[in-house]
Amino acid sequence: MSESISVDVSVDARGLFCPEPVMMLHSHFRDMSGGQVLELIATDPSTTRDVPRFCQFLGHELLRQTESEGEFHYLLRKCE
């Protein structure tokens, strides 16, 4: 059974291309508190590379990464 994760901020980056989705992450994470969860929906396949690197570089936690019908869904937790 899948764990239910409460989303604090949703970001729709569908139709945007690199580097815009990651720039949106930076912008939203700046206003979030540590421990809050952000959901990102994107259509740019480069996000499958860029979002994990964003998390690794800045120390945020990538909780979930899925792809369905050309949409990429991510759940990220801001580091404390």
Rank of each mutant, 00 (worst) to 15 (best):
M23Y: 06
I5W: 12
D44W: 09
S10I: 04
T43G: 13
G15Q: 12
P19A: 02
S33A: 07
C18D: 13
T66Y: 04
R49W: 14
L76C: 11
L38F: 02
D31M: 03
A13E: 11
M1A: 03
E20G: 02
R30C: 00
S4Y: 10
Q56N: 12
S6G: 05
D44L: 06
P52G: 04
C18T: 13
L63C: 02
S4F: 08
V22D: 07
R64I: 07
G34N: 02
K78A: 00
Q56C: 03
S68Y: 14
F57W: 10
D8A: 01
P21A: 07
V11D: 09
L62I: 07
D44Q: 05
A13P: 15
V51D: 10
L25F: 04
T43R: 09
A42Q: 05
H26I: 02
S68Q: 15
L38A: 09
S33Q: 14
S2W: 06
H60T: 01
F54I: 01
S27G: 07
I5G: 01
E20K: 15
M24L: 15
E20M: 14
G34H: 01
V37W: 14
E39Q: 14
F29R: 00
G34E: 01
S4M: 10
V9E: 10
D12I: 06
L75Y: 07
G35E: 07
P52D: 05
E61Q: 13
C55N: 04
P45K: 07
F72W: 15
M23R: 13
H60A: 00
C55A: 06
V51E: 09
Q56W: 08
F54Y: 13
H26S: 10
R14F: 08
C55V: 04
M32T: 02
S4H: 11
H60F: 06
S33F: 10
P45N: 10
T47G: 08
L25Y: 03
V9F: 09
P52F: 03
